[in-house]
Design a protein around this nucleic acid. Structure first.
Length: 291
DNA sequence: ACCCAGGGTAACT
DNA sequence: AGTTACCATGGG
């Protein structure tokens, strides 16, 4: 774990000495569906606050990527509110600034194939997103392509989320409580309609609680999430990896299955043990852009 | 028109 | 335990 070093300003937080980071690799690698490229960076919601995220090189110049740079920084500008120290820490965790990626990558790169995948996209970070949003968006993701997943996530946000500035936050479970299965069908969610209704209901009635998921060991947490209709091993793994810090959770989609067969015919290399999920992001990105 | 998508379920061997 | 059709929709 790293210490998160930051400076609070009136409307923004500046994180210092952040190590390798690439905004496009991080926000467009299929882990988050509600961040948009804007000006020199990306906008989206962090902890229900609308943020504008940019990276700076050692001279303070905005750049899309700071891989290989010393003393790079990240700026998170808030819309219409003042950052607190508590928010700065939470946002830092969301953005994975508290995790020592230099050490992880050094360990992974002892494997030759992993070294290649990391070199291809050294600025990927696994975000730590909101539990409920991650659950819902990855139910939507099943048997669906990324552009359309984004579209459907936007649709549900614009219909039921809180408007902040000119954008809509992803709705809470409470905000989604009156959406019926038919409503989801009318919004073109297709066969996922009943899955979404079940997920929201189980979260609201407490059958699925965020606190419980986060307290359980990996295997039990996966089974626990699979109580929800339409949540199988892949969706559960995505939720655990992208919102519960279960870094050994290894979502296996069609791309990863293809990539693993080709890149690692002998199975998962021991160099990534314990952090298969983080390693998986490099492999996923590498596979999608080269295979 | 055609294939496929960051899959899951149910109904089969 | 390991296959396979089917599910809705629309991006490319």
């Amino acid at each position: 774990m790293n210490n998160i070093q930051f400076v609070l300003n009136t409307d923004k937080i500046i994180y210092k000495n952040i190590g390798d980071y690439d905004l496009e690799q991080t926000f467009e690698c299929g882990q988050a569906f509600r961040f948009d490229r804007y000006a020199d960076g990306y906008t989206g919601f962090v902890e229900k606050q609308l943020c504008y995220i940019t990276l700076q090189d050692e001279k303070g110049q905005n750049v899309p990527s700071v891989c290989g740079m010393e003393n790079a920084s990240m700026t998170v500008k808030l819309y219409g509110t003042q950052p607190t120290e508590e928010f700065a820490l939470a946002a830092g965790r969301f953005l994975a600034l508290d995790t020592d990626y230099a050490a992880l990558k050094k360990q992974f790169a002892q494997n030759e194939v992993m070294a290649r995948a990391i070199e291809f996209a050294p600025g990927i970070r696994v975000l730590n997103q909101d539990f409920f949003e991650t659950l819902i968006t990855f139910i939507i993701s099943q048997n669906n392509n990324i552009p359309r997943i984004k579209q459907l996530c936007d649709r549900i946000s614009e219909g039921y989320g809180t408007k902040v500035g000119d954008r809509y936050a992803f709705p809470t479970a409470q905000q989604m409580k009156d959406i019926t299965e038919q409503d989801y069908r009318d919004m073109k969610f297709g066969f996922r309609a009943k899955y979404l209704a079940d997920a929201v209901a189980k979260v609201l009635e407490g059958t699925i609680s965020e606190r419980t998921v986060k307290s359980l060991p990996y295997e039990e947490a996966q089974k626990y999430l699979m109580q929800i209709k339409g949540v199988g091993p892949k969706v559960a793994d995505c939720v655990l990896l992208f919102s519960c810090r279960q870094y050994r959770s290894f979502p296996k989609d069609v791309w990863i299955k293809k990539a693993m067969a080709q890149l690692f015919p002998d199975g998962i290399p021991q160099e990534i043990e314990g952090y298969e999920g983080i390693a998986q992001q490099y492999i996923f990105h590498y596979a999608r852009h080269t295979l």
